[in-house]
Write a protein that binds this DNA or RNA. Structure first.
Length: 255
DNA sequence: GCATTAACCACCG
DNA sequence: CGGTGGTTAATGC
């Protein structure tokens, strides 16, 4: 388990290994230059800040069933998705899981928790095998103290996410599944939160169903409708957005 | 009526 | 071969 590994290394806390931990043999490692260059905030930093960030940044593979971070655990890292797809969710007292949003490649999250140095308030789990980068919370704060550009990035990110969550509330109050799928897709293609994603997103219809909270069959029906309207194109193992604005605003009706 | 689950099969990589 | 997509039938609210 990704988060446990980090805790073990940095705080020397002995953690009992649960069965799912053994499935994750991959070592965390430093990032390649190409991976560093793909990080949206990295290129904003001054040379000495870059160096410090690069020295601290680590990357590891996470699989479905693993927890990248877990509700209630103390914050250790600020996380970013290098490849794959994660979901943000929480569990209520009845044990039901509620999924809030997906995090596609290029997305960084947990800054709110990192800022306050408190416990994670959500679970983050991969929907498929994913590569997740982590910046230690101390380095995160060091960057906040030294780089105006980094502060601006974080501010921008928080602001954008606020808009995203308000949109998510709207989505939840929509009863129409076609619009729910459209709006959820639009938020995954947010160019501020997930830059460099392009027009294609690798996501299976099953994964999308988990995120939206519908059955795969109903998601498939909605995607077919959206494709008929030339708003998206359905591709094998993913989809391409043709008209992001329509996804965000349009009302779709069956013909 | 509408969405969900279960099941089936063709196709892709 | 396993995973994914498109479809249908039965079931439930």
């Amino acid at each position: 388990m990704f988060s446990l590994r980090f805790i073990q290394t940095y705080n020397a806390i002995v953690v009992t290994i649960t069965p799912s931990d053994s499935a994750l043999h991959q070592r965390r490692r430093s990032l390649t230059q190409a991976e560093l260059d793909a990080i949206p905030w990295y290129c904003l930093l001054a040379p000495e800040e870059r160096q410090r960030a690069a020295e601290d940044l680590k990357i590891a593979e996470a699989s479905p069933g693993d927890y990248v971070c877990r509700m209630g655990r103390p914050v250790t890292y600020w996380f970013g998705v290098v490849d794959g797809l994660l979901k943000m969710s929480s569990d209520n007292a009845q044990g039901q899981t509620m999924t809030f949003t997906g995090v596609p490649p290029g997305g960084w999250f947990g800054e709110g928790t990192a800022l306050k140095r408190e416990a994670y308030r959500y679970n983050i789990q991969p929907l498929r095998k994913s590569m997740v980068a982590g910046l230690h919370v101390d380095t995160f704060h060091w960057l906040l103290d030294h780089s105006i550009a980094f502060n601006r990035f974080i501010m921008n990110q928080l602001n954008e996410r606020l808009g995203q969550f308000i949109a998510a509330r709207e989505i939840d109050r929509m009863t129409n599944p076609d619009i729910r799928v459209a709006r959820s897709l639009a938020s995954l293609f947010n160019p501020v939160l997930y830059p460099g994603l392009g027009q294609v997103l690798r996501i299976t219809q099953q994964e999308l169903a988990y995120l939206v909270g519908l059955s795969r069959q109903r998601v498939n029906e909605a995607l077919t409708l959206l494709a008929e309207q030339n708003v998206i194109r359905v591709e094998y193992g993913g989809l391409r957005v043709l008209d992001l604005n329509a996804l965000r605003t349009q009302i779709f009706t069956k013909s």
